[in-house]
């Protein structure tokens, strides 16, 4: 999923301060799952903002909405009836959601209330870790199911580097060395030899380096 964390209140407050009527929009997808921008977080942020402004003697109107999927124009359309009553939109979705709203409602300022962080997986309750960088050319098949691009601090395709210590990365003892994990996994699979295969320099065109990416499915596109 796409993970996110709420921005500091100070930053959010600075964004919405000039406005009296805020449409606060959450999303039921990824940011709900990682407890950053779902219905609950929308309510909490709304309450915190309300209290902040009340404390200053200012009353603002906050309408809370949580869409099924904010990155989908179909659902963003649901906001159409509420836009007239709002001076600005505060979105708790990932950057994709924020942009979908911005694209649909061109005259309305839209502010992100979260920092979109990474594509990750849940390690355990309340802990998410980066797992994928969306490079567009998956190497997991040759790296034992562990992504060195997302999980090696130097995104080495031929690791580990000399900083791998007791299974941990040199940058932080709490970060696993991706190449130690890859090595352990290749061993478990009986594929130790593979560690000596030189993985060639990556073609980053499939990644962000090739420019913004787009997927067009002719069979589905209307």
């Amino acid at each position: 999923m796409i993970t996110a964390v709420r921005k500091p209140m100070e930053e959010i407050i600075a964004c919405v301060s000039p406005y009296d009527r805020i449409l606060l929009v959450g999303c039921n997808e990824c940011v709900s799952v990682c407890s950053a921008g779902g219905r609950k977080e929308v309510a909490l942020l709304s309450s915190a903002l309300q209290m902040h402004f009340l404390k200053q003697g200012k009353t603002i109107e906050i309408r809370e909405m949580t869409l099924e999927r904010q990155c989908d124009p179909e659902y963003v359309e649901e906001l159409v009836n509420y836009m007239d009553g709002a001076d600005a939109v505060l979105s708790m979705a990932c950057g994709c959601g924020v942009q979908t709203i911005a694209a649909r409602f061109r005259e309305k300022p839209v502010f992100p209330a979260v920092n979109t962080t990474f594509m990750g997986a849940s390690e355990r309750q309340g802990v998410w870790s980066e797992r994928c960088q969306g490079c567009g050319d998956c190497v997991l098949g040759i790296t034992g199911g562990i992504c060195p691009i997302a999980r090696c601090s130097k995104r080495l395709l031929n690791g580990p580097c000399g900083g791998s210590t007791k299974g941990k990365c040199e940058i932080d003892a709490n970060v696993d060395c991706a190449w130690q994990l890859i090595w352990d996994r290749l061993k478990a699979l009986g594929l130790e030899k593979r560690i000596e295969d030189v993985i060639e320099a990556k073609d980053w065109r499939t990644s962000r380096d090739g420019g913004p990416r787009k997927i067009v499915r002719e069979d589905l596109a209307s």
């Binding site: 209140m9 407050i13 209290m51 902040h52």
Partner: peptide, 8 residues
């Protein structure tokens, strides 16, 4: 923590 953030 949230309250501290809004100066409460």
């Amino acid at each position: 923590a949230l309250l501290e953030e809004i100066g409460f």
